[in-house]
Design a binder for these strands. Structure first.
Lengths: 210, 210, 210, 210
DNA sequence: TTGTAATCGAGACGGTACGTCCTGTCTTAAC
DNA sequence: GTTAAGACAGGACGTACCGTCTCGATTACAA
């Protein structure tokens, strides 16, 4: 997307950070205010009443500016989500697999149920049911990386010799994360820490018992 | 909604002397053709392009007739789903817990990934993320009953003394169904029989080992 | 049209005047309340917002009862008008042509500008511009008779020898009534008594001077 | 509403006449095709079956474009009428009052009974009975000017010394025009030239005889 | 120093679908 | 056999957004 104009070139932009668009690229200011407006409106009015026109008005931006850079409402939310949630769910490393997994599962549950970014994720996951292209973006830009984080504690444990290298890590991740997402997206039950802890223990008991 | 006004209740009407005017109620024909049109169009054009006007046209029904009986597009789909999927997912009973669970998990996976009713369910679950009222209807009219079916093999096993009566059945159900729904709704991976079998075995190994 | 069931047969109805519809014919009560509801609603909400459904509700009558007896909204108003305005505009007879005409012209002006029946007449005349059938009914059931009344003072004057029998009475009526209706329907100016008196005088000066 | 964006300002627009509507103003092309469609449909299907949707379709214009610029169906017709009938009824000047009045009265009668613009005028006058705002627009944008034209022959006669300066011109206009409009709008009789000639003569005989 | 090219805001446009209102027809049960 | 009640197919209403388009202003580099 090349949407990111910040970063190492910000010295040359220091004096012109507020440009309103010219031949040399898009307005970073407009981009930011669109993403923030989308984020805010999603929380305030919900996905259904979130409109491009509403985002444009809230962002103080022309509708065409949005259409120039984003193909659809979902793509705006996707960008907003990627920007906001980039850091979130990296698991800790205490050299204690059970502890790391428990902490990580709790963090994921909290993200899904209690954070703004989680609300955006739920909305995007919902829309992805009707929109294969969005589903693909979600997979490539979020879920793949997330799967990497989810696997990380197991891989570290293997590296330090604390876990059988033949363990089926993806299965283990599905067994821990599956019930969490299931409760959040389907049954809408709470996801207390006892629940995630129990899931982790069940997986580790099987893996450890080998 | 008391959507059914015709049918078996006409006996009680014969004695109801206190009618002022017509109580002939809604047209069952119109109701059916709306539900069928909604079903068909959802499969053909997808949720996003499914419109009330399209349903009305396909059903040969006036738009107002739809609005008279259904508050929203989602409520039509909900009715269609309830009608179609009423029978579907009752587990078999072979007096073999492992076999019954494996069969049931495979049937659920097939329902979610390969049936028309499953497509409606996925669409409804997606919309329920944005619509608490729909979420409530889904819970009360489908998921509650479904949870009963999912628990049934365990309860039968307890009844016949093959399982510890203290087993946490709801947890076990979450551990089997959670990863299935997770793959369907989130990661969009296939759900092969080896996967569901493994989930069942993992749960039973723990329960049996108690 | 046969819309009128009253009149000379009302003796035989005396004992059944309040029936709500049976084998003996239409409900006079329903007919009356429809006409009154139409009248009242026309004054209250205006022609544009006058609906059959509104009339039915106000009259406490089923919509079908209206459609059974009246072909259209305008026909209801026409009946209401005929019933209300039957008596209104019969000219007095003082054996003084000028005085009779002045009085009559004033009464017509007052009818058009200040009476409820006049409001109905204006509405009907307006709709008659778009509806030839209504225009015909207006002509046959009102304007013809009204023209007779308008001519009456002249005919009486001829009969008593006070006016040349060769006078063009229709022209004279047009010259007096035309400007009155013109002000009411087109320019919406007031129609004061000085104005109608002057019109009468102008006509009589010509006729008398012949 | 400032519904008129064309007209005297079109000089400044000369170079941008083909724009399709942007921040600098509305599309003149859309405006024209709406007015023409309304005009044509009124003549073809009549006022009652004239719909905004029909106009939009015929004009090849979106419904919202109509609602953006005209508050109602009547306002469209009013604009169409003002545009079409701007030139129409200016009286000739032959320095012969009787001849000018006769010619003018004939032209007015012809306009009302035999022209497309006259059909629009009759429809508007009819609707003005139910709509005070429309009545006001008709008065200000047409009838005032028309009254000026109707008075013109008399004023010219006074200017050239052929008529008593104290003559009541408005009364004379009412006496000539009133019966014409009366026949057109109320009695629906023909308005032959003998009739208008007689009206003119009656008025002039009185004025001239003073 | 000026011209050029890309972006910006603004907003009118042709459309689609919305949810509402009313029309005129039909059916039913009550009286 | 008329009535009140009200469901029905149909169709227009006026609104909200969609995604496209043109416009004049703004800006930064290149000529």
């Amino acid at each position: 997307m090349g949407a990111d104009a910040g970063g190492s070139t910000n010295r040359s932009r220091a004096t012109t950070a507020k440009h309103r668009g010219n031949r040399h690229g898009r307005s970073e200011e407009a981009r930011q205010s669109v993403l923030e407006a989308a984020d805010g409106l999603l929380v305030e009015v919900g996905y259904t009443r979130l409109t491009i026109e509403g985002i444009a008005e809230r962002a103080g931006v022309a509708k065409q500016t949005i259409y120039r850079w984003w193909p659809s409402k979902n793509d705006i939310l996707m960008d907003a989500f990627v920007q906001d949630a980039a850091e979130a769910l990296v698991p800790s490393d205490t050299a204690d697999l059970r502890r790391d997994l428990r902490t990580h599962a709790r963090k994921v549950a909290h993200f899904l149920t209690a954070s703004d970014a989680g609300a955006v994720f739920r909305a995007l996951t919902a829309q992805a049911q009707h929109d294969p292209a969005l589903a693909a973006r979600l997979r490539f830009e979020h879920l793949g990386k997330q799967r990497g984080y989810d696997r990380l504690p197991f891989e570290r444990a293997i590296a330090r010799g604390a876990l059988d290298p033949g363990a089926d890590i993806d299965l283990a991740v599905d067994q821990i994360m599956g019930p969490v997402y299931y409760r959040v997206l389907v049954t809408r039950q709470d996801v207390p820490e006892e629940f995630t802890d129990t899931l982790v223990d069940a997986v580790l008991d099987r893996l450890g018992g080998a």
